[in-house]
Structures are given as C-alpha cells and as structure tokens.
Design a protein around this nucleic acid. Structure first.
Length: 814
RNA sequence: GGGCCGGUGGUCUAGUUGGUUAGGACGCCGCCUUGACAUGGCGGAGAUCGAGAGUUCAAAUCUCUCCCGGCCCACCA
C-alpha cells in the first residue's frame, strides 16, 4: 500500500509521466485476443501472385487421430519461428498445414474403436468406418497448434495453394495416382514375384524402411538329424524348428574338417523324413551351433540371399495370414508360434533334441504392429531405386542440411539399400493403385491421368481391351505404401499438376523440416520420387530435429507415466513461456531436448522482465526535439546493431537457441541493468540538468532499442511483442520488416567496452551496498578512468557523484 | 560386429580455424522493498571441460586409445 501510494504521488505530481502500459506483468490471458486476431484477419495468408520471393515450408502433416504430443508442440513451434522470421525478411511465406489421414494408423484405430477386423469387413463398409472416425477426430489436434500461436498460411481446408490439405482428399490421391501413371509409362514400375517382408498381423508386404528390430528371447534348439548314406547322427541348431519342413539344404563351412566327409551326402529331415543335400558353403560358420546349418525358405535374410544365390526353388510353408500350410504337414493351420511349440514337443517326444539353449535374438519386427515379420514369396509392384542411388547421393550434396551432420543418416541409409521399393500393399484406407486387368488376356489397363480412380469398385475408363477386345475387366485391389503418398508432399504443396506457373516459380521447396527417425522413409523417398518426377533437388534446405525427452532424459511414454501434455503446459503457463522455452532450452537439431515444467515456468520470468522494461520505456514518448546523442546512447545503439546482425545470421541457419540466449542476456544484463539505469536521470530530467536535446537522445534511444529488440524477438515470442509493439508504437509488429542496424552508430567510437562500463557501474553499486547505503546515496568523490570522460554527465547523475576526477583506476569515497 | 552423434559446476547450455583467471541460464545459499520490475536487485558456493596418453611455448578445442549414453545398420542359422 505504502509503495503504491508513493508511486501515485510521484507520478502525478513530480514526473508527470505515466506509463502507457499499466499492467505490471504479462499474462497468458492476453494471448487469446491476439491469436484470434491473427486468425480472423487472416494475417498470414499466402498470395501466389505476389511478386515477393517465396519461402515455402513442407510442413509435416501430423496424423489426425493422435493428440499433439510434446515433440510436435516443440518442433512445429520452431517451424513457426522460421515462418515468422522469413516473413519479416520480406518473403511471401508458404507455411501450409496438412493432415495425414491415410494408412495403417487410421485402419488400426478403426479396428479398435468399432471392434471390427479389416479382413472380415466388406471394403466399402470399412472405408465408411474410416471416414466416420476421421470425421470425429479431424480438428482435435489443431487446437493445440492454434493455441501455440502458429502462423500457418490457412486454417481452412481446401485445394488452393496454402490451404489446409488432407492426404486422403481426392486431389491428393489423384496426384499420387498421376505420378504412378507417369512412372509406369516410363517403365520405372514393374511387377515381380519375390520374397518380401511380410507382416502377418497387418497382412501386407512392408518395405525395408518399415522394419524395426527388437531383441526377443528365443530358444536355440539343437536337433538330431540322420545322414542317409552313413546313418550317423548330426546336430543342427535352429531357432525356427517349425521351418524344418521347408529345409532344402544343409550346409557346413568348406574349412570345417568335422563335416568334410558329408559332402554330396544327404540329410534326412527329422519328423518329415525327406532327404536334402548336404553341401559346403562359406555362409555357414564353424562357431555357430554345431557348424551345420539348415537352409529354410525362409527364416531370415541370410536364407533369402542363399536361395537367390543357389537358385533353389523355395518351399513356402507359411501362408499370408501367418499360419502354416500343407508343406508343414501335421503343423498345417497352426500359427507360427503354435507350430513352433508343437514341433518342439514332437521332437522331444521322439528324443530328437540334444539340448535347448535360451538366447536373445535380434528380430525384425513390423514398425506399426510390432509383430515379427515373416518372409513370404509373393507378387508385388516395385519402384526402381537401385539404379538411382548415385543420383540421390548427388541430390543430397546439393541440399543444405541443418545440422550438417544429420546428412550422414541419409547417406548411410542410401548405402544400405539392397533392392527396389515394394510399393503395393494389401490394405484398404490408402490410395488405390490405378490399374485394371483384362479378364480374357490379362492385359494391364492403365488409365489416363487427371482423375482419382478406385479400381476395386469402378469400371475402367475403356470399354474394350485394346489387345484382345475383351470387355470384362477386374480392378486392382491393392493400394500404395503410405510413403508413396507422403513422398510427394512438397510437390503437392507447391501446386504440382494444379498450378504449373506457381510450381515452376517455387521449386525447389525452401525447407523440409522433419524428425531424424524418418530420414530413411519420408526424406529419402521424397528425394527419390522428386528426382524421378522432376529430375532435380526438391529441397533447398532440410532441417532435421531430434527428440523431446522427459526431464531425466527418458523417452516419454504412457507406461512410464512421464508424459507431459502440451495442452497442460498451455493451460498452466500460456503459449508464450513455452515458445521461448523451446528456443532457450537447446538446439534440437544437434541433440535431444529435455522437458520439465520447472524450466518452462522459469523461462516465463524473462517475459516479465521484458514487460517491465517496456513499461518503463513507455513513460517516455519521443518528442520533436532533435536528439543530441551522448556516448552512452551511441554505445548501446552500436551494441544493438551488433546483436541484430548476429541474430539474423543465426536465424538464417534456423538456429534460435544461441541468439535467444544472447538476446536475453543483452536485454537483461546490458540494456536494463546498465543503459537504462544510467539514463534514468536524463530521461526524467526533472531538475533540468540536461538539455532538451540530451533528454531527447535518451528517450529516442530507449524507444529505438526497445523497438528493435521487440522485432528481433517477434518470431519467437509473437504474443508479447505484438501487444507491446501495439501499445508502444501503435503498429502491427507482424507487418514490420526485420530490423537493420542503425548505420549512424555501427562505427561509433565510445572509448570503452561493454565489459568496462558494466564493471565500472557494478563496482560503484557494490561499494554502496557494502556500506549499507542506498544506490541513490551520494558519492563524495570519484576518480574514474579517463576512457569514461565522454559520459561524464550520465555517470555523475546516475551515481550522484559530487566531485569527479580522472585517473588510471576507479576510486570512490562515499 | 560396423557406422553416426553426443559426453563442459546438481541440471541445461555457449565456446572446438588451439592463446590471458572456461561464458550464460536453471536450481541452491546469504543479504536487500531503491522511483519499470520481489516472476526484482546484489553477493556467494559449486567444473580435475568423460578417462588416459601424445603433439605444442600453449589443448575444452588437434591426434590416438579407451569408457559411458543415444541412434542407425549387419546373415549368428
């Protein structure tokens, strides 16, 4: 009360200056009207006709049916920093929002929610359930983005450039099919019967890129076999006894003397009694198991390679649904797991097991369903990629990576590719492969581009087969791998096939932001597909981010109970503290980011500081008097120029961590603590010790520096800077260009450095403190280093120095 | 087994074309209502820069080896 009372008297009767800003601190309640304004005024709309250079962002379309998690919140917010910065730099920024509504996650959600199974539900019915689910969940995930203040080009769903797009829209799917038809015409796609990675749970072929590995415990069973010619017992170890039925050969290492005598002889399959040849082959290792290996079709990648190399016809014992077939004899109809159990029991009962060994096996599993994959021989469509590896590497070289080191993830992946990309899938909710087959002659009918086709329920665009004249056709039932869709997102976003003029003008896309875990999928496939379609690099820059972890550095997961919900953060602290925390915490392109409530809350203190600086500055409105700049002013204005340059340099590299740390420090420790304190007497000038022009210089500088600071902060903290800018200067900060250093001061000589000035002030203040005096207490005599001569007046007033002399070192008497 | 990235006070982070007492933040401790701000101010404690060796007048920074963490890849049947 006492405090308020005194302030009241002072401000009315003595200073006669009122702060334009009344509230004592920033409140998250100020956010909503600001973001509503952004949305209703459509401030970030994109005009393709604008003459300004375009900066385009291939925003990753988030999945609709999962809520926004911390990783999304952080990374999309950083993308927003980039978009806002580029707008200030004078670019027409295309920052579109897409929603990924295709593929397995949707289907799996439908199966769960409506308790149906894909294979037992009619296709039409299943798709309508997908639509129903999507209808309900479509906008839920956008709420957090909206609250975080993201400046997407549009929130409206549509097909125009920059409008929010759905990956399952007719226009997106049409483009996917168009690109397929193009590539088909160029013979880039072919059908082949091969062993593929197959997920029995998803019941579809999957690509190498969709495989994960997990250590799964299994049993290494040492099985007794008989040699036909000699009758001796040999031991063969396996983790897949259920596949003994599909064994076509037994091998040993050519250098393994133990088995040399078996060359050309035959082994008899236990239980089944079938004979298979015994051969030497270098892929068998002496140390593993007994040194003898059975080659099955197919237990793992080595088997596949072996069969391909030896040109042996495989005996396929596993069906597409993951059950054993007639080749497995008595195991027929059982699941792989049951079959393994039964086989082991059978071997035990016939005394055919020498020993069992527990082991952990690094097992390939399906990325989505986490089921161990099987290797199944089937016919699929393939997109050529092996012959383009070199080209893609060259494209990668012409693309800038942030951080540069992340590029290696891509290069490594390209190096390990070993076969073409299987693009067909046996699922429902995805883009249909646009093909029909003539029933009579099996001719493949490829439709013309320009329409979205659903061959499984539609007739082909022709009435007669061009080859045999047949009139009956069967539509292709398979769909595309979801990455076949996703990999054309930059093309879609830039209007490929829809707005040729704009596309030509805007390619390559300025920026692809994405996670490091999908380099081998989204990034790789996008570069591949774009190269095939437009024959050049599709991105200028690729920004690859790491992950957001909990405060201890653990992955956030429901089971660990350490999940931090961004919605919760926004409710508790508002968007602005979260945004500044994103920049302040670290650089997510170099390492993982740890997230804690405490640190986010801590970040909000800076907002209060900034607010109060602005509140102070707002007491002093610039006048018409021509300013007479003192060296104190020149010093801070020069520093300001330096900060502007450095900030822009780092923003250009999509680095916000270093500049925001430095800005924060500059604002708090230099501008507020020193410049502001030193010019207070001059700015108030209530006893007329300074000229009007000197006062005007202080006021000009206070406002000028704050103006530029707000602009530098605007990309990161758009809410508070919006409000302060409006209140102080009456303008929309969103319409301001990125600040430039004031040329008049970039080369100003002040005779002292920032450190020297900070040190001088601090020592005077400390002496007073140590003596228990107020900071206003007079200094009877001060000897000050000569370099500060030209800021004498400010020093005298700021420290209440009664008598001042110059010397080599600071000395004061109180 | 191979590759990539990282390892700086309790926690996070800057600094790596080698150059004076390793910068900042969070947290902690102590003191302080001073006129923008107690979500503030001032002061303090706290780091053998993962370990060892080497190069050098000089190493957080360069070289080698090793250790730890993360990620990716690979045929243990």
């Amino acid at each position: 009360m006492r405090c308020l009372h005194r302030k009241g008297i002072l401000s009315h009767e003595v200073f006669s200056v009122d702060p334009k800003i009344n509230e004592k601190r920033w409140s998250s309640e100020f956010e909503e009207p600001i973001r509503r304004g952004w949305k209703t005024k459509n401030l970030f709309r994109f005009n393709p006709k604008n003459k300004k250079p375009v900066f385009s962002i291939d925003t990753p379309p988030p999945y609709v049916n999962t809520p926004v998690h911390m990783g999304h919140a952080v990374t999309y917010t950083i993308m927003d920093f980039i978009a806002r910065f580029k707008r200030m730099q004078g670019f027409e920024v295309l920052f579109p929002l897409g929603l990924d509504r295709n593929g397995l996650p949707i289907e799996m959600a439908v199966e769960k929610k409506f308790n149906v199974s894909l294979k037992e539900t009619p296709r039409e019915k299943f798709i309508s359930l997908c639509h129903k689910l999507l209808e309900e969940s479509s906008t839920e995930s956008l709420e957090s983005f909206y609250k975080l203040g993201h400046s997407y080009t549009s929130w409206k769903h549509g097909e125009g450039i920059g409008e929010m797009y759905y990956t399952d829209s007719d226009s997106y799917r049409r483009l996917t099919q168009d690109t397929f038809i193009d590539l088909w015409g160029r013979r880039m796609i072919y059908q082949a019967k091969r062993v593929s990675n197959y997920c029995p749970s998803c019941q579809t072929t999957i690509a190498d890129a969709e495989i994960e590995y997990k250590d799964i415990p299994s049993t290494f069973v040492h099985v007794k076999w008989k040699v036909k010619e000699t009758g001796e017992t040999i031991i063969i170890a396996t983790t897949r006894p259920e596949l003994i039925c599909s064994c076509c050969m037994v091998i040993y290492n050519p250098r393994d003397d133990r088995y040399k005598h078996l060359k050309g002889k035959h082994a008899i399959l236990p239980v089944y009694g079938k004979e298979v040849p015994i051969m030497s082959h270098p892929s068998a290792k002496k140390e593993t198991g007994s040194g003898l290996a059975m080659m099955c079709s197919f237990g793992d990648y080595s088997d596949i390679r072996f069969f391909r190399e030896m040109k042996i016809d495989p005996i396929i014992a596993i069906n597409k649904d993951g059950t054993m077939n007639e080749h497995a004899g008595f195991l027929k109809g059982m699941s792989i797991e049951d079959a393994r159990k039964r086989m082991t029991e059978t071997l035990i009962s016939q005394d055919l097991i020498e020993k069992e060994q527990k082991m952990v096996h690094r097992t390939p599993i399906c990325e989505r369903s986490k089921t161990p994959i099987e290797f199944i021989y089937m016919s699929e469509y393939y997109l050529k990629q092996m012959e383009m590896k070199k080209d893609i590497l060259r494209i990668a070289d012409r693309t800038s990576f942030f951080s540069p080191k992340s590029k290696q993830i891509l290069l490594d992946w390209i190096d390990t590719l070993s076969m073409d990309w299987a693009v067909s899938r046996r699922r429902y909710y995805a883009t249909e492969i646009p093909l029909w087959y003539c029933k009579k002659c099996t001719e493949i009918i490829v439709p013309p581009k320009g329409k979205y086709y659903k061959p499984w329920k539609e007739d082909p665009p022709i009435k007669k087969c061009p080859k045999c004249g047949g009139t009956e056709f069967v539509g292709e039932e398979r769909v595309f791998d979801t990455w076949f869709d996703s990999s054309i997102s930059p093309l879609y976003v830039l209007g490929y096939g829809r707005d040729h003029g704009f596309f030509k003008r805007s390619i390559p896309c300025s920026l692809r932001p994405q996670g490091k875990e999908i380099v081998r999928t989204w990034l790789y496939y996008t570069l591949l597909r774009s190269y095939q379609l437009i024959n050049k690099p599709v991105f200028r820059n690729v920004w690859i981010h790491y992950h957001v972890l909990d405060e201890k550095g653990n992955k956030m997961s429901k089971s660990l109970g350490n999940v931090i919900d961004p919605a919760d953060i926004i409710n508790r602290f508002g968007a602005e503290p979260f945004r500044i925390w994103c920049a302040l915490e670290g650089n997510i392109t170099v390492s993982d980011l740890k997230c804690s409530y405490e640190r986010i809350e801590g970040a909000s203190k800076f907002l209060t500081k900034l607010w109060n600086i602005a509140r102070f500055v707002s007491m002093f409105r610039p006048t018409k008097t021509k300013p007479d700049f003192q060296d104190t002013d020149k010093w801070i204005l020069k520093e300001m120029g330096r900060i502007i340059k450095k900030t822009e340099k780092h923003y250009e590299r999509f680095d916000f961590h270093i500049p925001i740390s430095e800005l924060k420090h500059f604002i708090w420790e230099t501008f507020a603590s020193h410049y502001l304190e030193m010019v207070k007497p001059r700015a108030y000038n209530h006893d007329g010790k300074f000229t009007k022009a000197e006062q005007a210089a202080a006021i000009y500088t206070l406002n000028g520096v704050l103006d530029k600071l707000l602009l530098l902060l605007a990309p990161i903290t758009p809410f508070i800077t919006h409000k302060l800018y409006k209140d102080l200067f009456g303008n929309l900060i969103e319409e301001q260009p990125f600040p430039r250093p004031d040329r008049r001061f970039t080369k100003a000589r002040t005779g002292f450095t920032t450190t020297e000035l900070v040190d001088l002030n601090s020592r005077i203040w400390k002496e007073k403190k140590d003596k228990g005096l107020s900071l206003k207490a007079p200094v009877k005599k001060a000897i000050v280093p000569r370099k500060f001569r030209r800021i004498e007046k400010d020093l005298i007033e700021a420290h209440s120095i009664e008598h001042m002399e110059y010397g080599d070192r600071l000395k004061i008497r109180l």
